[in-house]
C-alpha cells in the first residue's frame, strides 16, 4: 500500500498552476519598461551648410512662391496676408499654372517655394505650413503619376518615380529665420 502511493507520486506531473503567475510577472515587467512610440513624422532633407547667402535674385520673380510666417503666426504669401487653409490649393495652382497666368510659374520645373519664418514663430505653425507645402507637392505628383501611369505615386517603380519627379521637382527653399520675437 505504501509502495504504491510513492510510485503514484513519482508519476505526478509538475504543477503548472504557477506558470500563469510567472508569465504575468514578465508581462507586467515589459509593460512598465517599454513604450509604444509613435514613430511617424514629416521627413525632410536639409540642404548642406554653406557660409554664403544664397542668391535669390537669379530667379525670375514669377517663379518664386514666397511664404513668410511672422512671430504672431500670421502668414504673408507673395506679399498678401493669407491663411493656411487656402495654401495647398494655391500652391498647386501656382506650380501647374493651368490658366497660364503671367504671375504664376513658367512651368512646374521652374517653380520654387520659398519659406521664411521668425525666431518667434511657433513650431506648430511652422510644421503646419510645411505640411501643406508637402501635401501640395505630393498631390501634384499623384496627379501626374495617375495621368501618365494610371497609378498613385507610391505604387510606381523607381524609373517611373524619377520621371514624375522630373516633371514636379520639389524645390523648397528655407531661408534663415529673422530674429523677431524670441522668447
Amino acid at each position: 500500500m505504501a509502495k504504491k502511493s510513492s510510485r503514484d507520486r513519482l508519476s505526478n506531473e509538475v504543477n503548472a498552476g504557477s506558470m500563469a503567475d510567472i508569465a504575468f510577472l514578465l508581462l507586467i515587467f515589459f509593460l512598465v519598461t517599454t513604450t509604444i512610440v509613435e514613430d511617424k513624422g514629416v521627413l525632410v532633407r536639409l540642404p548642406p551648410w554653406s557660409e554664403e547667402e544664397p542668391d535669390v535674385l537669379k530667379f525670375n520673380k514669377r517663379n518664386v512662391y514666397s511664404i513668410l510666417v511672422n512671430a504672431n503666426n500670421d502668414l504673408l504669401v507673395r506679399g498678401e496676408p493669407s491663411d493656411v487653409e487656402s495654401l495647398k490649393d494655391d500652391i498647386k495652382e501656382f506650380i501647374m499654372n493651368p490658366k497660364k497666368r503671367e504671375d504664376y510659374a513658367e512651368s512646374s520645373k521652374d517653380a520654387i517655394v520659398s519659406f521664411k519664418n521668425d525666431r518667434g514663430t511657433e513650431y506648430e505653425k511652422y510644421l503646419e505650413v510645411y505640411n501643406e507645402v508637402m501635401a501640395a507637392y505630393n498631390e501634384l505628383r499623384d496627379e501626374v503619376a495617375n495621368s501618365k501611369f494610371g497609378k498613385d505615386y507610391e505604387f510606381l517603380d523607381k524609373n517611373q518615380r524619377n520621371e514624375v519627379k522630373e516633371i514636379v521637382p520639389m524645390k523648397l527653399s528655407e531661408a534663415e529665420p529673422t530674429s523677431f520675437g524670441e522668447e
Partner: peptide, 25 residues
C-alpha cells in the same frame, strides 16, 4: 516651442552633415 531653438538645432545638424531629419508628428 518657438522656431529660434529649432532653427539653431537645424543649423547644427546641417553643419555636422546630418541632412535626413524627421519632424515627429
Amino acid at each position: 516651442t518657438t522656431m529660434g531653438i529649432v532653427g539653431d538645432v537645424k543649423t547644427a545638424l546641417r553643419k555636422s552633415g546630418q541632412y535626413k531629419v524627421n519632424y515627429s508628428a
